[in-house]
Amino acid sequence: MTPLFQTGNAVRVRKGSPPGHIRTPFYVRGCKGVIERVAGEYRNPEELAFGRFDTPVVPLYRVRFQQQEVWPDYQGNPQDSLDVEIFEFWLEPANPEKT
């Protein structure tokens, strides 16, 4: 699968909370970040969790968030950041100009 995003792309994490086993932490859902790197392709944990071990691999990214984007009341250097691994199907393009 060719990755949809490249390093530097602005992305937003989808907001959903489907039932099942989700590896996208609650706290970044709906947040905007930037692709730090394409981190390879792995099997989908949401399927692996139900014993389906042979579904196709999907691109995984490291997404960098500003702490203040994730926690509006964050105390500390405004540059402080948070890198999280997120699978492609949890991401959508974000307009970097708009917040």
């Binding site: 540059q79 402080d80 950041s81 890198d83 999280v84």
Partner: peptide
């Protein structure tokens, strides 16, 4: 800058 890495998937 404090940079936190949340090891959420395969890395």
């Amino acid at each position: 800058e404090v940079r936190v890495h949340d090891s959420t998937a395969d890395l």
